[in-house]
Design a binder for these strands. Structure first.
Lengths: 235, 235
DNA sequence: TGAAAATATTGATAAATATCAAAATTCAGG
DNA sequence: CCTGAATTTTGATATTTATCAATATTTTCA
């Protein structure tokens, strides 16, 4: 892995500014980071491609460096449910048995660090902070899925949309109220929110009409009234 | 822990016939089971009581021996979403950070083995099968939650109810098509299925009218047409 | 057992969302 | 920059579900 263009005091694994967001590497010593880096491989994937498919052997754990992906689960009737969107700093593939039980589709060009799951597990035995980080990531994922369950179970279309927007604002690195880039299509939003594309579209129209949000471009969201959007999104 | 009434060849930790269902103890040697049992404490809880509340320190892991519990998450607006129902053999409290992010309410009298989480983690370092079992439990829980997400996102009230019935049939020890005991109230079902008590009630009426199910008693479900119920429930 | 309380069902209506169809907008490739 | 394809929005309508209210059933406990 090339570290040629890296300032000396920044560890190569923190390249691309994922430092702040990347829970996996938190609290590790430079020495431990080196070991981790040694078992990582930088991997790239284009928009529309799949990082992995459902039922593929779950041999790798991925750490998103750049780009956005959708975790999706396809069901026997062909329908799909998007379980979540992941961004730089997020970790994929930690909670699986032998096979992945969902697929990961790239919504943009994506760069990931790819770890052998086996090796990461061995490493986590030796590096205490790594183990703790991995456990914390799992519990966060679970917590997030439970919020998602609540939203699908209890919230209306408009509120669901606000929930998504707040998630993006909080989790997308670099997102600010006046600039949230939506890398997913309206259909993706619908599949995440348990809704239809038409309902998403109408809810957007309502939010726009009420001046809670604006769309300078189709996929460039501005949150004009953060308090109101947050209120609607509230869990 | 008393083993007085235990046949000699059956390990005490397998008391109450949870053997088949209990993933946590699978593949452990009698010696390893002894160690595990040493750090367990049998604990009881009455119907309506809480095993633990949301935001309590997540110090224990529970293994259900008998009874049924509901995992519920309460939100700031007072609404609740039931995340799942757990039965004998199921494990509670494995995926949490320092605090429990949900509460566990007993739907019946409940007996659990209570393990110190810290101690269980230490033990899992030494007992390889235990660690594997714990990982497998986590991935199963996650897989189940993803099915749940799909059901809330994509299914209609009637189908949701069938989904619940199929889950009960598959997971409730001793459940058979002609005898599934519903330990939860209609309100609990609604809170699990992201619906209202009235809609649950009407869906039940429809299923009864169509002869897919019957209710000899209010909480004694009979699945008359398993194929049809299964078809409706299908993920 | 019998009355009160709790829970569940049913009815009428309103609200929310899905579906189908068409128009508008955006995007991609020459 | 233009044109056809893809995506998104909007419209009309049907379906589903929630809400409010009343009734029925079940449970509890004196």
């Amino acid at each position: 892995m090339s570290t040629v263009f890296m300032p000396k005091h920044i560890h190569p694994i923190y390249f691309n500014n994922v430092f702040d967001e990347c829970l996996l590497f938190q609290n590790l010593t430079p020495n431990e980071l080196d070991r981790l880096e040694g078992s990582a491989e930088l991997s790239k994937c284009n928009e529309g491609e799949y990082l992995f498919r459902q039922d593929a052997p779950a041999d790798f754990v991925y750490n998103v460096i750049s780009g956005t992906v959708a975790i999706e689960r396809i069901f026997s009737n062909g329908k799909r449910q998007i379980i979540g969107f992941l961004f730089p700093g997020d970790v994929i593939g930690l909670i699986h048995s032998e096979k992945y039980d969902c697929a990961v589709r790239c919504l943009t060009k994506v760069e990931v660090y790819k770890f052998s799951r086996k090796r990461l597990n061995i490493l986590s035995e030796e590096v205490d902070h790594l183990k703790q980080n991995m456990e914390q990531i799992k519990s966060r994922i679970f917590s997030r899925v439970m919020d998602h369950l609540y939203v699908l179970g209890q919230k209306k279309a408009l509120e669901r949309l606000c929930f998504l927007f707040m998630q993006l604002l909080e989790r997308l690195p670099g997102a600010r109220p006046d600039r949230v880039d939506l890398y997913m299509s309206r259909q993706d939003m619908a599949d995440y929110l348990g809704s239809t594309i038409e309902t998403v579209s109408r809810s957007l129209a309502k939010l726009k009409a009420d001046k809670l949000v604006a769309f300078p471009k189709l996929n460039h969201l501005q949150i004009l009234n953060l308090a109101a959007v947050s209120e609607l999104a509230e869990c």
